[in-house]
């Protein structure tokens, strides 16, 4: 066999070559929200573990989570989770072999975005409203 030397071959065009499109951004956001949620999970496990420990410690953690920054993080976490769940629903539909027409793909992408924002707002209105 001839010696195989790495040669400077042209690489296939990568992401930055293409004009950003909605469906492409949705794919990236799906992965990004997945990774962000994985990081966020440690916060929620911390929060629940604190609740299992003591009143004093939980009060401290609740103060952190209840601060404007904590609320912002939790708002972001809930949006990411809802967005990722709806994105997953699109994938489950595609898994059945349906919904590959360009019009449908575009429509589902838009519905995913609209759904994630409106459901996040609904969640916080209802969730906050349920508190006594």
């Amino acid at each position: 066999m001839a010696e195989t030397k790495p040669t400077a071959r042209p690489l296939s065009p990568h992401l930055q070559i293409y004009r950003p499109m909605l469906t492409m951004m949705m794919s990236i956001i799906h992965r990004l929200t997945g990774v962000a949620l994985a990081l966020g999970m440690v916060l929620l496990v911390w929060w629940l573990s604190a609740a299992a420990m003591s009143d004093d410690y939980f009060n401290l953690v609740q103060e952190l989570f209840g601060s404007w920054f904590g609320k912002l993080v939790m708002l972001g976490f809930s949006w990411a989770l809802i967005h990722h769940a709806l994105g997953g629903l699109r994938h489950l539909i595609w898994d059945t072999g349906r919904g590959f027409e360009l019009k449908t793909v575009e429509l589902m992408a838009r519905a995913n975005l609209a759904g994630s924002f409106s459901l996040t707002i609904l969640l916080w209105i209802v969730g906050y409203g349920a508190r006594t």
């Binding site: 939980f58 009060n59 989570f65 939790m74 769940a85 969730g127 906050y128």
Partner: peptide
């Protein structure tokens, strides 16, 4: 996930 999120939002800032 729906249940989980509702649980969090309903207990954020709540006493232990």
């Amino acid at each position: 996930v729906g249940f989980f999120l509702y649980f969090i939002v309903a207990h954020l800032g709540a006493p232990r």
